[in-house]
Every structure is written in structure tokens, then in C-alpha cells.
């Protein structure tokens, strides 16, 4: 625990893409631990893309925004493209009013859109998108 704090946020590996989702109850320590864990995983797996689903986040304050921006920059330096997907409308409005536009962070409407942008496509048989 002292050696390596974990944020308790699962990070899945799908080929060269890492998939993760942030939950609502993310305190500052967990946010930092998550950044560290994800950065390390990118380095060890050589991932080319990272999808972070934030559709469950009801609040993104300047600290969480900072975390997402740092993560994007760090990942880019390691050769991975980060997409933050599924931001809720109230969160987007609040961030803009806070004066934060998440410069340098790529966004997608949903996890599925984000995965598609990272080179993952749904099969031809699945016509309908599942509800987010």
C-alpha cells in the first residue's frame, strides 16, 4: 500500500488500448494514484490508446480537470492517445463556466465513440448502440 497506492479504479487492456472508468467517489489521493497507475500501465504495455469513461462523474472540479489534462500530456509523451468519453451535460457547462476547456484533452460522446476513434469498431451485426 505504501509502496504502490491503488486508486481502486480498474484498468482493462484490450489489445493496444487501455480502458478505464472514473466513478463519482474520486478523492484527490485516488485521482493521483490513478494517474500514476495508468501512466505505468501505458509504459509497461506499450498501449497506443487510452479510453477514460467519465459518464458516471457528476462533478469535475479544477482538480479532476487538472488530473485529466496531466494524464493526456503524460500519455502523449509515452506515445498513447487519451480520449475522455461521456462527459455529462451539467459537468460540461460547469467546466466551461469555471473557465476550464480541458485544452489538449480529446473528448468523445460515449465510450463506444471513443473506442471507434481509437480504432475499435463494433461488429456489423450490432446495429443498435447500447444505452449509455
Amino acid at each position: 500500500m505504501n509502496q504502490r497506492p491503488t486508486a481502486g479504479v480498474p484498468i482493462l487492456r484490450l489489445g493496444d488500448v487501455l480502458v478505464s472508468g472514473l466513478l463519482n467517489e474520486l478523492d484527490d489521493k485516488s485521482a493521483l494514484a490513478f494517474t500514476e497507475e495508468l501512466t505505468e500501465t501505458i509504459a509497461t504495455t506499450g498501449a497506443r490508446g487510452v479510453l477514460i469513461d467519465i459518464s458516471r462523474l457528476e462533478l469535475v472540479d479544477s482538480f479532476v480537470a487538472r488530473t485529466l489534462m496531466d494524464l493526456s500530456t503524460t500519455a502523449r509523451l509515452l506515445g498513447a492517445r487519451v480520449i475522455v468519453a461521456g462527459m455529462r451535460p451539467p459537468v460540461a457547462i460547469t467546466l466551461v463556466e469555471l473557465g476550464i476547456e480541458l485544452a489538449g484533452v480529446e473528448t468523445a460522446l460515449s465510450a463506444e465513440q471513443g473506442m471507434a476513434a481509437l480504432g475499435w469498431y463494433r461488429g456489423a451485426s450490432s446495429q443498435e448502440r447500447p444505452e449509455p
Binding site: 484527490d28 457528476e58 462533478l59 469535475v60 472540479d61 479544477s62 482538480f63 451535460p89 451539467p90 459537468v91 457547462i93 460547469t94 463556466e97 469555471l98
Partner: peptide
């Protein structure tokens, strides 16, 4: 409403931090 809720909670989070 949900947007005003988010505004106030976010402001509170900034001020408390």
C-alpha cells in the same frame, strides 16, 4: 435543477479545497 446543483457543488468543492 441538475445544472445548478452541479454549479453549486463544484463551487463548494473549489472553495473547500
Amino acid at each position: 435543477g441538475i445544472v445548478d446543483q452541479t454549479r453549486v457543488v463544484t463551487a463548494a468543492s473549489e472553495l473547500a479545497r
